[in-house]
């Protein structure tokens, strides 16, 4: 489900290779929680493969963001997929997560 790469400077890079829906929210949470090490300074989530995200998935992202703030590390969302961008647009969440969102050229929505 996830591929990871850990760098030495305390940055953890994760690619979510699945949907972020209620069906896998539980396992996703467990997985992500596993990377919350005291030494972690930054958690990077590659969202490019998230073809579907629902409220449960969004809830997890919000939870991560809050937790990162609480624990004092940075959560960085990378390569938002269309599905993620759509939800972020819908709820005006871009600013909250604060990550640059690259809108693909073939973006279906105007």
């Amino acid at each position: 489900m996830t591929a990871k790469a850990k760098k030495n400077d305390g940055t953890v890079q994760l690619a979510i290779k699945d949907d972020m829906t209620i069906y896998n929210a539980e396992s996703l949470k467990e997985t992500l929680l596993g990377y919350f090490h005291p030494g972690t300074r930054e958690l990077q989530l590659d969202l490019s493969a998230v073809t579907e995200i629902d409220s449960a998935g969004l809830q997890l992202l919000l939870l991560l963001k809050a937790e990162a703030q609480k624990r004092g590390f940075t959560l960085r969302l990378l390569r938002h997929s269309e599905a993620v961008i759509e939800v972020f647009e819908l709820l005006k969440l871009g600013m909250y997560f604060g990550d640059p969102i690259v809108i693909p050229a073939n973006w279906k929505k105007s």
Partner: peptide, 27 residues
């Protein structure tokens, strides 16, 4: 047109106790 959305999760427990299938979202 949706002008602004504020999301809050007032009932969100500690991350360990959070059940991903539960809904904590308030809009």
């Amino acid at each position: 047109k949706i002008i602004e959305v504020i999301i809050t999760m007032p009932a969100l427990p500690r991350i360990e106790d959070m059940v991903p299938e539960d809904c904590y979202l308030n809009f």
